[in-house]
Deep mutational scan, measured.
Amino acid sequence: ENVVSAPMPGKVLRVLVRVGDRVRVGQGLLVLEAMKMENEIPSPRDGVVKRILVKEGEIVDTGQPKIELG
C-alpha cells in the first residue's frame, strides 16, 4: 500500500511529516478531526514520504488519498 487514504471524512488539522521523511509503521502521519474528535492517522508500513496530497485545514472524504509512501 503506497497511498494512505482517509478512513473517515473530516478536516486535516495537522500534517506531522514532510516529503523525504522516513516513517515507521504506526508512526503518526497527520491529525484528522472527525465528529469533534482528533484522530492521528498512522503509517501502514515503513517507508519514505514521497508526496503529501492534502493541506492543513482541508476537508477530506472517506477513501481520499492523503499521503504517498515510497
Rank of each mutant, 00 (worst) to 15 (best):
K36Q: 14
G63P: 02
V3Y: 14
M35Q: 12
A6E: 04
V54Y: 02
P7M: 12
E68I: 15
L69C: 04
E33I: 12
V54L: 02
L69I: 13
R24D: 06
E68Q: 09
A6C: 13
R45V: 13
G70R: 12
L29G: 00
E68T: 10
D46K: 06
G26A: 04
P44V: 04
V12E: 01
D61W: 13
A6I: 09
K55D: 07
V23Y: 03
L16W: 02
N39G: 05
G28T: 15
K11M: 10
D46A: 11
E33A: 09
E58T: 07
L53T: 03
I59G: 04
E58V: 05
G70Q: 13
Q27W: 05
L16M: 09
I41M: 05
A6P: 04
G63F: 08
P42Q: 13
V17K: 00
E38S: 09
G47S: 05
S43Q: 01
V23D: 01
G47Q: 03
G28C: 15
V12F: 00
D21Y: 05
G28L: 14
V25D: 04
R45W: 14
D21G: 04
G28V: 15
G57D: 06
L69F: 09
G63T: 06
V49A: 02
K11Q: 07
D46N: 11
R18S: 12
K66A: 15
S43E: 02
E38C: 11
V25S: 10
I59A: 08
L13N: 04
E1Q: 13
M35W: 11
V60F: 04
V31A: 02
V3D: 05
V49L: 00
P65Y: 07
G47T: 03
L69Y: 04
D61K: 15
V23K: 01
K66F: 15
E40P: 07
V48E: 06
G20R: 04
K11C: 09
V54G: 02
V19P: 08
M35K: 10
V12S: 00
R14I: 08
G57Y: 05
I59D: 10
K66I: 15
D21A: 06
V19Q: 08
R14L: 07
V17I: 07
G57I: 04
D21S: 07
N2G: 10
L13V: 12
E40D: 06
G26P: 00
A34N: 12
V23E: 01
R22Y: 14
R18P: 02
V48D: 03
E40C: 15
E38M: 11
I67P: 01
Q27M: 08
K50F: 11
R45K: 11
E56R: 08
V25L: 12
Q64L: 05
L69N: 01
V3N: 06
G10R: 03
T62C: 12
D61A: 14
D21M: 08
I52M: 02
P7T: 13
A34H: 14
V17P: 00
K11Y: 07
V23P: 00
N39F: 15
A6F: 08
V31S: 03
V15F: 10
P9M: 11
D46H: 08
G70H: 14
L29D: 00
R18W: 05
T62M: 13
Q64N: 06
G10K: 02
V31I: 14
R51E: 07
E56L: 10
V49C: 04
E58Q: 13
